[in-house]
């Protein structure tokens, strides 16, 4: 009954996504310690791969053009600098903001785009970005 073998990760847990008739997706997660063997039955086509890649990325449907992203980045950078947060640009085309070397903010620079292994810094910076967005509205 499982149609798509999907992804594995930390602790090697396996996520199996199974599209339902009503348009919803049923997700079964097998925890890493309970996995005995993995066998890939068939490789899926690109369309399904694309669909799976965006399965949990809900709310990221809004698209921005390059100019807009640049503007958002610079405004956020200025806001963080104004709050005495050390921030620099990094990545291949300088699109990622890096805060104090431990947190990255990817386009489109919302609270959900922050990544850090330090949850205290993550929480603080997400709070800052939220208050910055609230201030703009």
């Amino acid at each position: 009954f499982i149609q798509t073998l999907y992804e594995s990760l930390i602790l090697d847990s396996i996520l199996l996504a199974n599209p339902l008739e009503n348009g919803k997706v049923s997700v079964l997660v097998v925890l890493g310690h309970a996995v005995q063997d993995i066998e890939i039955v068939t490789e899926r086509d690109d369309e399904i791969k694309e669909k799976l890649a965006h399965l949990f990325m809900a709310g990221k449907s809004q698209t921005y053009n390059q100019e807009e992203l640049d503007r958002r980045k610079n405004r956020l950078k200025n806001w963080l600098e104004k709050n005495h947060i050390p921030v620099r640009e990094q990545g291949e085309s300088q699109t990622t903001l890096c805060v104090a070397g431990v947190l990255t903010i990817d386009p489109p620079y919302g609270p959900e785009d922050c990544n850090s292994s330090n949850e205290i810094i993550l929480c603080r910076v997400q709070g800052l970005i939220q208050s910055y967005l609230a201030l703009q509205q």
Binding site: L20, K24, V25, S26, V27, L28, V29, V30, L31, H33, A34, L55, F56
Partner: peptide, 12 residues
């Protein structure tokens, strides 16, 4: 405890 769980499922 995650060590007690074999698998879990939900709908999206």
């Amino acid at each position: 405890r995650c060590s007690d769980i074999i698998a879990y499922s939900f709908e999206l």
